[in-house]
C-alpha cells in the first residue's frame, strides 16, 4: 500500500471542491471495500476523501408521499435499526443485516455497496427491485439516475470524475406490496453470493399488479430483468406464474464459472431463488409472516 493523503470535509461544497481538484481521489464512507482494495494493491490513490462527516450523506428521512431518503454514507446497522426503515422497507432492513458481519455492518454503507459496483453486491438487486433512484452531485450540478443504470461493469459505476453519490431515494411503498432479497451462499454468513435475487411485487385482487426482479453475481453488473417482472403483470399468484418468471430470470443470467460456482449451477440457482424470493415477497404483500432467511 502506497502513502496517501486523507481529507474529511464536513460540508458537501468542500467535498466537491476537493474532489474537483483531485479527480483521482478515492471516496471513503465505511471503507470496508476500499481499504481492502488499497491494501491488496487493487486500487492506488494519492488522496482518500472521507465523506461520512457530511450531513447530507447521513440523512434518513421518510415521508408517506415522497418515500425514503437514505444518505449514501448511512451504515447498514443504522439503516436496519431505524424504525421507519424497518416499518416501511422491511426487505431493505433485512438486506442491510446480511452484508458482512456485525462489526462490518457498523461501518459499511448501502451507498458504498452500490458505488463499489461489484456484480455480487447484496443490496443492489433489492435497490433495483424497490425502484430506488440515485442522487448524484458534482461541482457543476446534480442529476438523478435509477439504480439499474448506475453500475456499468465490475468496479465501475456511472459517476463522472468530480461527482459523488449523495443519497438514494426510495418511492413510498404501495398498499399490498412486498419485497425480498435472497442469495445463495455455501455458508450461512460472511460470504459472497453465488447468485442473488431481489424482487418487489404489488398485488391486486389475488393477481400481480406489478413486479420488479433483479439478479446478483450472474452478469458483469447487477442485472435488472424487466421481462421477468413484467411477465407477472395481471397474472394470478400461482406456482405457474412464479415458475414462468423464474425461468425468464434464469434465461437472462449470463454468469461465469469460477471458484464460487459453475455457469450451469448459477443459472439453476437464479430460477430457484427467484421463485423463493417471489414467494416471500407475496407472503409479505399478503401481510403474512415473513419467512426467515
Amino acid at each position: 500500500m502506497k502513502w496517501f493523503e486523507y481529507e474529511a470535509p464536513t460540508t458537501l461544497a468542500d467535498a466537491l471542491a476537493i474532489l474537483d481538484a483531485n479527480p483521482g481521489a478515492c471516496l471513503l464512507a465505511g471503507g470496508t471495500d476500499l481499504l481492502v482494495q488499497l491494501r491488496a494493491g487493487r486500487k492506488q490513490t494519492d488522496l482518500v476523501l472521507d465523506i461520512k462527516r457530511i450531513p447530507e450523506l447521513n440523512e434518513i428521512s421518510f415521508d408517506s408521499a415522497s418515500g425514503l431518503t437514505l444518505g449514501a454514507a448511512v451504515c447498514c446497522a443504522e439503516a436496519y435499526e431505524h424504525p421507519l426503515v424497518k416499518q416501511h422497507y422491511p426487505a431493505l432492513a433485512e438486506v442491510a443485516s446480511i452484508i458482512g458481519g456485525t462489526q462490518i455492518q457498523g461501518r459499511a454503507s448501502i451507498g458504498g455497496n452500490l458505488c463499489n459496483a461489484a456484480p455480487s453486491a447484496d443490496a443492489v438487486p433489492l435497490l433495483i427491485a424497490l425502484g430506488a433512484v440515485c442522487r448524484v452531485v458534482g461541482i457543476h450540478g446534480e442529476r438523478e439516475l435509477p439504480v439499474e443504470d448506475f453500475c456499468l461493469a465490475p468496479g465501475q459505476n456511472a459517476m463522472n470524475p468530480g461527482e459523488l453519490l449523495v443519497s438514494l431515494r426510495f418511492p413510498a411503498p404501495l398498499p399490498a406490496s412486498g419485497a425480498h432479497y435472497l442469495r445463495f451462499i455455501p455458508r450461512n454468513e460472511m460470504d459472497i453470493a453465488v447468485a442473488g435475487v431481489g424482487v418487489s411485487v404489488t398485488l391486486e385482487n389475488g393477481a400481480f399488479k406489478a413486479a420488479r426482479i433483479a439478479l446478483a453475481s450472474v452478469a458483469p453488473k447487477p442485472l435488472f430483468v424487466p421481462a421477468a417482472g413484467d411477465s407477472l403483470k395481471g397474472k394470478p399468484v400461482s406456482a405457474e406464474s412464479l415458475d414462468a418468471a423464474a425461468q425468464l430470470a434464469k434465461a437472462a443470467a449470463s454468469p461465469i464459472s469460477d471458484m464460487r460456482g459453475t455457469v450451469e449451477y448459477r443459472r439453476h440457482l437464479c430460477a430457484v431463488l427467484t421463485r423463493r424470493a417471489l414467494e416471500a415477497a407475496v407472503r409479505q404483500a399478503l401481510g403474512q409472516a415473513q419467512e426467515t432467511r
Binding site: 455458508r187 450461512n188 471458484m259
Partner: peptide
C-alpha cells in the same frame, strides 16, 4: 490459488 482469502476459502463459521 484463486481463493487465497478467508472470504473464499470457506471455513465454517459459528452459524454453520
Amino acid at each position: 490459488m484463486m481463493n487465497s482469502s478467508f472470504l473464499d476459502y470457506r471455513m465454517p463459521t459459528a452459524l454453520d
